[in-house]
Measured scan of single mutants.
Amino acid sequence: MTEYKLVVVGAGGVGKSALTIQLIQNHFVDEYDPTIEDSYRKQVVIDGETCLLDILDTAGQEEYSAMRDQYMRTGEGFLCVFAINNTKSFEDIHHYREQIKRVKDSEDVPMVLVGNKCDLPSRTVDTKQAQDLARSYGIPFIETSAKTRQGVDDAFYTLVREIRKHKEKMSKDGKKKKKKSKTKCVIM
C-alpha cells in the first residue's frame, strides 16, 4: 500500500485542523484551538488504489514558523489553505509557496490551493482571484467548507493525484537520464 505524506499549511484560523478532522473523523470542530502540530493517518481508496494518507496539520501562528522547514522537508505534497473571508490569509499563500519551493529546492512541488469556509456569506476573496492565482502557479484550486464537508475529500484526493503525477514524471525523467548515460565512448 502506497503511503502519501501530505502537509496542510496556511495562516492561523483558516480551518486547516477543521478540514483535516472532517476528512479523518467526519465531524466539524467549530471551536478554535490553535494547533502546534498534529499528525493523522487514514486509509482510503483513490482511483481504485488503496493508500495510506499521513497528514500533518501544522501551526499557522507566526511564533511556530521555525518548525516549518522541518515538516516541509518531509512532506510530499501540500494543501495551501486560505479562508475566503480573510484576504490576508490569501496573500500569505505566496509566502508559504515560496518557502516550500526553497526548502524542497524545487520549482515543481505537488500543491493544491484550497479556499476554505465557502459556506460563509462574508467572502472577501473572489473565486476568480483564487483561480487566477492557482493557474499562475500551475496547481489545482478547490473551494471547501469544513463545516458542510463540501470539497473536503476532493481537496485531499486531488493532492494525492498531483503527487502521483509528480512521481510518474520524475521516474520518466530518471529513465531518460539513465538511457543517456548508457551511451559509451570508444577510443581507438
Results as ranks from 00 to 15, higher is better:
Ala83Glu: 15
Phe82Thr: 12
Ile84Gln: 15
Ser122Arg: 07
Ile100Asn: 03
Asp126Gln: 07
Val125Ile: 10
Ile84Arg: 12
Met72His: 06
Gly77Gln: 00
Val112Asn: 00
Pro121Thr: 11
Lys117Gln: 13
His94Leu: 14
Glu76Thr: 15
Glu98Thr: 04
Asp108Gln: 07
Thr124Cys: 10
Ala66Arg: 06
Gly77Pro: 01
Lys101Asn: 06
Phe78Leu: 06
Lys104Pro: 03
Ser122Ala: 10
Leu113Tyr: 04
Phe78Val: 12
His94Pro: 01
Asn86Ile: 02
Leu113Asp: 00
Ser106Asn: 11
Val125Gly: 12
Met72Ala: 11
Asp119Gln: 05
Glu98Asn: 04
Leu79Val: 13
Pro110Ala: 03
Asp92Thr: 09
Val125Arg: 08
Pro110Val: 03
Phe82Pro: 01
Glu63Pro: 09
Arg102Leu: 09
Glu107Gly: 10
Ala83Tyr: 03
Lys88Gln: 13
Tyr64Val: 08
Lys101Gly: 08
Gln99Arg: 06
Arg123Tyr: 09
Asp126Ala: 07
Glu107Trp: 11
Asp108Arg: 05
Ser122Leu: 07
Gln99Ser: 06
Glu107Met: 13
Glu63Asp: 12
Val109Trp: 05
Ser106Trp: 11
Gly115Cys: 10
Glu98Ser: 05
Met72Arg: 02
Ile100Tyr: 03
Ala66Trp: 05
Met67Asn: 06
Ile84Thr: 14
Arg73Met: 09
Leu113Glu: 00
Asp69Gly: 05
Gly75Asp: 02
Met67Pro: 04
Met72Ser: 08
Arg123Asp: 14
Phe90Asn: 05
Arg123Thr: 13
Phe78Met: 06
Tyr96Glu: 04
Leu113Gln: 01
Phe78Cys: 04
Ala83Val: 01
Asn116Lys: 00
Val109Cys: 07
Cys118Tyr: 06
Tyr64Phe: 09
Ile100Asp: 00
Val112Arg: 00
Asn116Cys: 15
Ser65Lys: 04
Met72Tyr: 13
Met72Pro: 02
Pro110Cys: 03
Ser65Pro: 04
Asp119Gly: 12
Lys101Tyr: 03
Ala66Met: 08
Leu120Pro: 13
Glu107Gln: 06
Thr74Ser: 12
Thr74Glu: 14
Gln99Leu: 14
Pro121Val: 10
Asp119Phe: 03
Cys80Phe: 15
Tyr64Met: 09
Glu107Ser: 11
Asp108Ile: 04
Ser122Lys: 08
Leu79Ile: 14
Gly75Pro: 03
Glu76Asn: 15
Asp126Gly: 08
Arg68Val: 03
Lys104Gln: 12
Asp69Asn: 07
Glu98Cys: 02
Asn116Phe: 01
Gly77Thr: 01
Asn86Arg: 03
Thr124Pro: 10
Asn116Asp: 10
Ala66Pro: 11
Glu107Lys: 06
Gln99Thr: 04
Gln70Ser: 11
Thr124Ala: 12
Phe90Gln: 06
Leu113Ile: 11
His95Ser: 08
Phe78Gln: 01
Glu76Ala: 15
Asp105Phe: 06
Tyr96Val: 14
Gln70Gly: 07
Val125Trp: 09
Thr124Glu: 12
Val81Glu: 11
Lys88Val: 10
Met72Leu: 07
Val103Gly: 06
Cys118Met: 10
Glu63Gly: 06
Pro110Gln: 02
Gly75Arg: 03
Pro110Asp: 01
Pro121Tyr: 10
Leu79Asn: 00
Gly77Ala: 11
Ser106Gln: 11
His95Tyr: 11
Ser65Gln: 05
Gly115His: 04
Tyr71Gln: 15
Arg102Phe: 05
Lys117Gly: 13
Gly77Glu: 00
Ser89Cys: 12
Asp126Trp: 05
Phe82Trp: 07
Phe82Glu: 02
Val114Gln: 00
Ala66Cys: 11
Met72Asp: 03
Asp119Pro: 03
Lys104Thr: 14
Gln99Tyr: 14
Asp108Lys: 08
Tyr64Cys: 10
Tyr96Leu: 15
Gly75Val: 13
Asn86Leu: 01
Leu120Glu: 14
Arg97His: 09
His95Gln: 11
His95Lys: 14
Phe78Thr: 02
Asp105Leu: 05
Gln99Val: 13
Lys104Cys: 14
Asn116Gly: 07
Val114Pro: 00
Asp69Val: 01
Met67Asp: 07
Ser106Ile: 10
Val125Asn: 11
Glu107Asn: 09
Met67Ser: 07
Ala83Met: 03
Ile100Glu: 00
Asn86Gln: 03
Thr124Asp: 13
Arg68Ala: 08
Val114Glu: 01
Glu107Pro: 06
Ser89Tyr: 03
Arg123Ala: 13
Arg123Gln: 12
Pro121Cys: 08
Gly115Arg: 02
Tyr71Val: 14
Leu113Asn: 00
Cys80Ile: 14
Met111Asn: 00
Leu120Met: 12
Glu107Thr: 12
Asp119Arg: 04
Arg73Tyr: 07
Met111Leu: 06
Ala66Lys: 06
Arg73Pro: 04
Arg97Lys: 12
Phe90Cys: 10
Phe82Asp: 02
His94Gly: 05
Leu113Ser: 01
Asn116Ala: 14
Phe78Tyr: 12
Thr74His: 12
Asp126Arg: 04
Arg102Gly: 07
Lys104Gly: 06
Ser122Trp: 06
Ser106Arg: 10
Asp119Thr: 09
Cys118Ser: 11
Met111Thr: 03
Val103Asn: 09
Asp69Ser: 04
Val112Glu: 00
Glu76Met: 15
Met72Glu: 07
Ser106Leu: 11
Asp105Trp: 03
Ala83Arg: 06
Met72Trp: 06
Asn86Thr: 03
Gly77Trp: 00
Gly75His: 07
Arg68Leu: 03
Gly77Tyr: 02
Ala83Cys: 05
Lys101Pro: 02
Tyr71Glu: 14
Asn86Cys: 05
Asp69Arg: 04
Ser106Val: 09
Ile100Ala: 03
Ala66Ile: 11
Asp126Tyr: 08
Gly75Ala: 15
Val103Met: 15
Val125Thr: 11
Glu76Phe: 13
Phe90Pro: 04
Arg97Tyr: 14
Phe78Ser: 01
Phe78Asp: 00
Pro121Trp: 06
Glu76Leu: 15
Thr124Asn: 11
Lys117Met: 15
Glu63Ile: 03
Pro110His: 03
Thr74Phe: 06
His94Arg: 12
Glu76Arg: 09
His94Met: 14
Phe82Arg: 01
Cys80Tyr: 06
Val103Pro: 03
Gln70Asn: 10
Arg68Thr: 06
Cys80Ala: 03
Val125Glu: 12
Val125Ala: 11
Met67Ile: 11
Glu76Tyr: 14
Gly115Ile: 12
